[in-house]
Protein backbone atom coordinates (compact mmCIF):
# COMPACT_ATOMS: atom_id res chain seq x y z
CA UNK A 1 0.00 0.00 0.00
CA UNK A 2 1.31 3.41 -0.90
CA UNK A 3 1.47 6.12 1.67
CA UNK A 4 2.89 9.63 1.92
CA UNK A 5 4.90 9.99 5.10
CA UNK A 6 5.65 13.72 5.06
CA UNK A 7 3.30 16.60 4.42
CA UNK A 8 3.40 19.20 1.68
CA UNK A 9 5.87 22.05 2.46
CA UNK A 10 7.60 20.13 5.24
CA UNK A 11 11.32 20.73 5.63
CA UNK A 12 13.22 17.51 4.94
CA UNK A 13 16.88 16.51 5.18
CA UNK A 14 18.88 14.15 2.94
CA UNK A 15 17.99 10.50 3.54
CA UNK A 16 14.58 11.24 5.02
CA UNK A 17 11.80 8.91 3.93
CA UNK A 18 9.11 10.72 1.95
CA UNK A 19 6.73 8.00 0.81
CA UNK A 20 6.35 4.25 0.56
CA UNK A 21 4.94 2.17 -2.25
CA UNK A 22 5.11 2.24 -6.02
CA UNK A 23 2.13 4.57 -6.45
CA UNK A 24 4.38 7.57 -5.90
CA UNK A 25 7.22 8.53 -8.20
CA UNK A 26 10.45 10.33 -7.25
CA UNK A 27 10.86 13.79 -8.78
CA UNK A 28 13.69 16.29 -8.50
CA UNK A 29 15.61 16.09 -5.22
CA UNK A 30 14.36 12.62 -4.34
CA UNK A 31 15.17 9.03 -5.27
CA UNK A 32 13.74 5.56 -4.94
CA UNK A 33 15.38 2.75 -3.03
CA UNK A 34 13.41 -0.48 -2.95
CA UNK A 35 9.80 0.42 -2.33
CA UNK A 36 10.44 3.75 -0.66
CA UNK A 37 11.16 7.27 -1.80
CA UNK A 38 13.80 9.27 0.04
CA UNK A 39 14.87 12.91 -0.08
CA UNK A 40 18.34 13.70 -1.37
CA UNK A 41 18.40 17.36 -0.48
CA UNK A 42 17.63 19.84 2.24
CA UNK A 43 14.41 21.45 1.08
CA UNK A 44 10.65 21.69 1.03
CA UNK A 45 8.42 18.78 0.00
CA UNK A 46 6.23 19.36 -3.02
CA UNK A 47 3.70 16.78 -4.15
CA UNK A 48 2.21 17.17 -7.61
CA UNK A 49 0.09 14.27 -8.71
CA UNK A 50 2.11 11.09 -8.30
CA UNK A 51 5.42 12.93 -8.16
CA UNK A 52 7.13 13.69 -4.87
CA UNK A 53 9.67 16.50 -5.28
CA UNK A 54 12.02 18.33 -2.95
CA UNK A 55 12.52 22.02 -3.69
CA UNK A 56 16.01 22.92 -2.45
CA UNK A 57 16.32 25.75 0.06
CA UNK A 58 20.02 26.31 -0.50
CA UNK A 59 22.60 25.52 -3.08
CA UNK A 60 24.13 26.80 -6.23
CA UNK A 61 22.24 27.86 -9.33
CA UNK A 62 20.97 24.94 -11.37
CA UNK A 63 20.67 26.12 -14.98
CA UNK A 64 17.53 25.39 -16.96
CA UNK A 65 16.61 26.16 -20.53
CA UNK A 66 14.83 29.47 -20.93
CA UNK A 67 16.20 31.10 -17.78
CA UNK A 68 17.14 34.77 -17.95
CA UNK A 69 20.45 35.14 -16.16
CA UNK A 70 23.01 37.83 -15.41
CA UNK A 71 26.62 36.87 -15.98
CA UNK A 72 30.10 38.29 -16.28
CA UNK A 73 32.36 37.74 -19.28
CA UNK A 74 35.44 35.93 -18.01
CA UNK A 75 37.11 34.87 -21.23
CA UNK A 76 37.13 35.83 -24.88
CA UNK A 77 38.22 33.05 -27.20
CA UNK A 78 37.76 32.01 -30.83
CA UNK A 79 34.19 32.56 -31.86
CA UNK A 80 32.76 32.70 -28.38
CA UNK A 81 32.74 34.29 -24.97
CA UNK A 82 32.81 32.44 -21.68
CA UNK A 83 30.41 33.76 -19.09
CA UNK A 84 30.44 33.18 -15.35
CA UNK A 85 26.84 32.66 -14.26
CA UNK A 86 27.46 31.53 -10.68
CA UNK A 87 27.25 27.79 -11.11
CA UNK A 88 29.99 25.20 -11.32
CA UNK A 89 30.23 25.38 -15.09
CA UNK A 90 31.02 28.19 -17.50
CA UNK A 91 28.36 29.32 -19.89
CA UNK A 92 29.22 29.70 -23.54
CA UNK A 93 28.06 32.65 -25.63
CA UNK A 94 28.62 32.00 -29.31
CA UNK A 95 29.22 34.83 -31.84
CA UNK A 96 26.14 33.67 -33.71
CA UNK A 97 24.04 34.33 -30.64
CA UNK A 98 24.68 38.06 -30.37
CA UNK A 99 22.54 40.68 -32.15
CA UNK A 100 25.51 42.56 -33.67
CA UNK A 101 26.98 41.62 -37.01
CA UNK A 102 30.54 40.54 -36.40
CA UNK A 103 33.03 40.37 -39.24
CA UNK A 104 35.15 37.29 -39.71
CA UNK A 105 38.39 37.67 -37.80
CA UNK A 106 37.22 40.71 -35.86
CA UNK A 107 38.46 41.22 -32.33
CA UNK A 108 35.62 39.92 -30.20
CA UNK A 109 36.62 41.94 -27.19
CA UNK A 110 35.55 45.09 -29.08
CA UNK A 111 31.97 43.90 -28.72
CA UNK A 112 31.87 42.24 -25.33
CA UNK A 113 34.99 42.60 -23.23
CA UNK A 114 36.35 41.01 -20.06
CA UNK A 115 34.47 41.89 -16.90
CA UNK A 116 31.50 43.27 -18.76
CA UNK A 117 28.15 42.05 -17.56
CA UNK A 118 25.35 40.80 -19.77
CA UNK A 119 21.73 39.84 -19.36
CA UNK A 120 21.41 36.62 -21.34
CA UNK A 121 19.10 33.68 -21.79
CA UNK A 122 19.96 30.01 -21.44
CA UNK A 123 19.14 28.27 -24.71
CA UNK A 124 20.54 24.86 -23.99
CA UNK A 125 22.05 22.81 -21.19
CA UNK A 126 23.89 19.83 -22.66
CA UNK A 127 24.46 16.55 -20.90
CA UNK A 128 28.00 17.40 -19.85
CA UNK A 129 26.47 20.41 -18.08
CA UNK A 130 27.85 22.99 -20.50
CA UNK A 131 25.50 25.93 -20.86
CA UNK A 132 24.76 27.78 -24.09
CA UNK A 133 23.58 31.37 -23.90
CA UNK A 134 21.97 33.81 -26.30
CA UNK A 135 21.76 37.59 -26.42
CA UNK A 136 19.08 37.60 -29.10
CA UNK A 137 15.80 38.43 -27.48
CA UNK A 138 13.86 41.14 -25.76
CA UNK A 139 15.73 42.84 -22.94
CA UNK A 140 18.90 40.84 -23.45
CA UNK A 141 21.94 43.11 -23.63
CA UNK A 142 25.12 44.36 -22.11
CA UNK A 143 24.68 46.15 -18.78
CA UNK A 144 26.08 49.65 -18.25
CA UNK A 145 26.14 51.34 -14.85
CA UNK A 146 24.06 50.48 -11.83
CA UNK A 147 25.00 47.82 -9.32
CA UNK A 148 24.70 44.07 -8.98
CA UNK A 149 23.72 42.26 -5.80
CA UNK A 150 23.58 38.54 -5.15
CA UNK A 151 20.86 36.50 -3.45
CA UNK A 152 20.30 32.77 -2.98
CA UNK A 153 19.00 31.42 -6.33
CA UNK A 154 16.20 29.49 -4.60
CA UNK A 155 14.76 32.79 -3.29
CA UNK A 156 14.44 34.36 -6.73
CA UNK A 157 10.77 33.32 -7.25
CA UNK A 158 9.82 35.14 -4.05
CA UNK A 159 11.64 38.31 -5.12
CA UNK A 160 9.80 38.30 -8.43
CA UNK A 161 6.44 37.43 -6.85
CA UNK A 162 3.30 36.22 -8.55
CA UNK A 163 3.39 37.46 -12.14
CA UNK A 164 6.14 39.86 -11.11
CA UNK A 165 3.99 41.61 -8.51
CA UNK A 166 6.71 41.99 -5.91
CA UNK A 167 9.44 43.26 -8.18
CA UNK A 168 7.19 45.71 -10.03
CA UNK A 169 6.14 47.15 -6.69
CA UNK A 170 9.78 47.68 -5.69
CA UNK A 171 10.48 49.24 -9.09
CA UNK A 172 7.54 51.60 -8.74
CA UNK A 173 8.43 52.88 -5.28
CA UNK A 174 12.20 53.14 -5.69
CA UNK A 175 12.05 54.41 -9.30
CA UNK A 176 14.85 51.98 -10.12
CA UNK A 177 15.32 49.79 -13.13
CA UNK A 178 15.70 46.24 -11.78
CA UNK A 179 16.49 43.02 -13.60
CA UNK A 180 16.37 39.77 -11.62
CA UNK A 181 18.43 36.90 -13.03
CA UNK A 182 17.36 33.36 -12.25
CA UNK A 183 20.91 32.70 -11.06
CA UNK A 184 20.42 35.00 -8.08
CA UNK A 185 22.18 38.04 -9.52
CA UNK A 186 20.12 41.22 -9.51
CA UNK A 187 20.95 44.37 -11.43
CA UNK A 188 19.71 47.66 -10.00
CA UNK A 189 20.00 51.00 -11.71
CA UNK A 190 18.39 54.16 -10.43
CA UNK A 191 18.58 57.89 -11.11
CA UNK A 192 20.83 58.37 -8.08
CA UNK A 193 22.75 56.27 -5.58
CA UNK A 194 20.18 56.74 -2.81
CA UNK A 195 17.48 55.04 -4.86
CA UNK A 196 19.78 52.13 -5.60
CA UNK A 197 20.70 51.73 -1.94
CA UNK A 198 17.03 51.71 -1.02
CA UNK A 199 16.16 49.10 -3.62
CA UNK A 200 19.08 46.96 -2.40
CA UNK A 201 17.89 47.13 1.18
CA UNK A 202 14.35 46.16 0.20
CA UNK A 203 15.49 43.21 -1.90
CA UNK A 204 17.73 41.91 0.89
CA UNK A 205 14.76 42.28 3.22
CA UNK A 206 12.67 40.16 0.88
CA UNK A 207 15.43 37.54 0.80
CA UNK A 208 15.70 37.40 4.59
CA UNK A 209 11.97 37.21 5.18
CA UNK A 210 11.10 35.14 2.14
CA UNK A 211 9.51 32.35 4.20
CA UNK A 212 7.16 34.58 6.24
CA UNK A 213 3.47 35.03 5.68
CA UNK A 214 2.05 38.19 4.10
CA UNK A 215 5.40 39.28 2.72
CA UNK A 216 3.95 41.56 0.05
CA UNK A 217 2.16 43.66 2.68
CA UNK A 218 5.27 43.93 4.87
CA UNK A 219 7.35 45.07 1.93
CA UNK A 220 4.70 47.53 0.77
CA UNK A 221 4.62 49.07 4.23
CA UNK A 222 8.39 49.37 4.32
CA UNK A 223 8.39 50.99 0.89
CA UNK A 224 5.69 53.50 1.82
CA UNK A 225 7.48 54.44 5.03
CA UNK A 226 10.71 54.95 3.15
CA UNK A 227 8.98 57.24 0.67
CA UNK A 228 7.53 59.35 3.46
CA UNK A 229 10.78 59.69 5.39
CA UNK A 230 13.40 59.87 2.72
CA UNK A 231 11.92 61.62 -0.24
Amino acid sequence: MSKLIVEERNVVVPGEKLATGMEYLPGNGSFREGEDIYSSQLGLVNVSGRFVKVIPLTGKYNPREGDIIIGKITDVSFGMWLVDVGCAYFACLNVREVPEFIDKGADLSNYYDFNETVIAQVIKVVRSKDINLTLKGQGLRKIKGGKIIEVTPSKVPRIIGKQGSMISMVKEYTKCNIVVGQNGKIWIKGENVEDEVRATEIILKIENESHTHGLTDTIKKALEEGTKNGL
Binding site: V13, P14, G15, G29, Y38, Q41, G59, S154
Partner: peptide, 11 residues
Protein backbone atom coordinates in the same frame (compact mmCIF):
# COMPACT_ATOMS: atom_id res chain seq x y z
CA UNK B 1 27.25 19.34 2.85
CA UNK B 2 23.49 19.09 3.37
CA UNK B 3 23.35 22.82 4.09
CA UNK B 4 25.24 23.54 0.87
CA UNK B 5 22.37 21.93 -1.03
CA UNK B 6 24.49 19.10 -2.38
CA UNK B 7 22.38 16.02 -3.13
CA UNK B 8 23.16 13.17 -0.76
CA UNK B 9 21.79 9.65 -0.48
CA UNK B 10 22.01 9.76 3.28
CA UNK B 11 23.47 11.55 6.26
Amino acid sequence: LAHAGIPMKDM
